[in-house]
Design a protein around this nucleic acid. Structure first.
Length: 267
DNA sequence: GAGGTTGTTTAGAA
DNA sequence: CTTCTAAACAACCT
């Protein structure tokens, strides 16, 4: 699940339920999930702390206390849930942050994500690595600069977190499909109309999916076709193409996205 | 059993 | 230095 819209949904969950509560206990059920501390260290650092804020940058979530900050990356299958203090847990619930009001559960079946505990004032960038501007806030000029500087393909450039933070495999496919741009095409050298389409598609897809808290899979979204057997383009009804691009499974419409069909309005 | 999956990091090659 | 590839992480699914 987790690309920018999902993480934003988790941020809102923390905001709604956990902010202004106090951490009564930290239950580390899988020591591998807490990356930079032992379970005892993490428990000591966070126990008794009041949760002050929840912030997101790209696909990263920061749950700040008045002291240390809890840094969460969700990998491919991580999720955050809120439940009653005595709510049921499953094996994939790796870390439980218990508060007076309920529990924040980090659930991750594949455990590819992780949690870090950063000291107050410590550099969060040291944990996250280099991140480009947040995809939600990037303007057309900055997007154009990032693309012009890349000598790689469009899709791999859009999903490079150090260039633009927040877009993943599904969103980049969705945005390129909406823009009618070839995911394997060069990132540099877009004309003004193409860049404008791309920026509008990026803003639109993010706006709708952030509102939903996930990428919608409705009939007008390419993402809905990802698991379908008979993949047809929601716009032109022709067959969709699937191939690995940039090492990720990619879905696109050869008819709409290879230049023969530009300039029409969205459905 | 085989092959697939929303993410990132690392090693190594070109 | 940039770019690309494969593999690893791990646990599910079809």
């Amino acid at each position: 699940m987790p690309e920018l819209p999902d993480v934003e949904g988790f941020r809102r969950l923390v905001d709604r339920h956990a902010v202004a509560t106090t951490i009564s206990d930290l239950l580390v059920r899988d020591a591998r999930t807490v990356r930079n501390r032992t379970p005892e260290e993490a428990r000591h650092l966070l126990g008794g702390r009041r949760i002050a804020r929840a912030e997101r940058y790209g696909k990263w979530l920061f749950v700040g206390t008045e002291g240390p900050t809890v840094v969460i990356h969700f990998g491919m299958t991580g999720a955050l849930r809120w439940q009653a203090a005595d709510g049921p847990l499953i094996a994939a619930d790796r870390v439980v942050i218990a508060t007076g009001a309920g529990s924040l559960c980090y659930r991750d079946p594949r455990n590819l994500g992780g949690i870090w505990v950063a000291d107050a004032g410590a550099s969060l960038a040291e944990i996250t690595g280099p991140l480009g501007p947040d995809a939600r806030a990037i303007d057309a000029v900055r997007l154009g600069e990032v693309l012009a500087r890349s000598r790689r393909g469009l899709k791999v450039t859009l999903t490079d977190q150090s260039l633009i933070a927040g877009l993943g495999n599904m969103l980049s496919d969705e945005i390129l499909w909406r823009s009618r741009l070839d995911p394997a095409g060069a990132a540099a050298g877009l004309d003004a109309a193409e860049l404008d389409r791309l920026h509008r598609a990026l803003r639109g897809a993010l706006k709708d999916s952030v509102r939903a808290g996930h990428i919608p899979r409705g009939p007008t979204w390419l993402t809905g076709k990802r698991d379908a057997h008979d993949g047809t383009c929601p716009r032109c009804q022709r067959s969709l193409a699937r191939r690995r691009i940039a090492g990720r499974s990619s879905l696109w419409c050869p008819h709409c996205q290879l230049g023969q069909c530009g300039g029409h309005a969205d459905p």
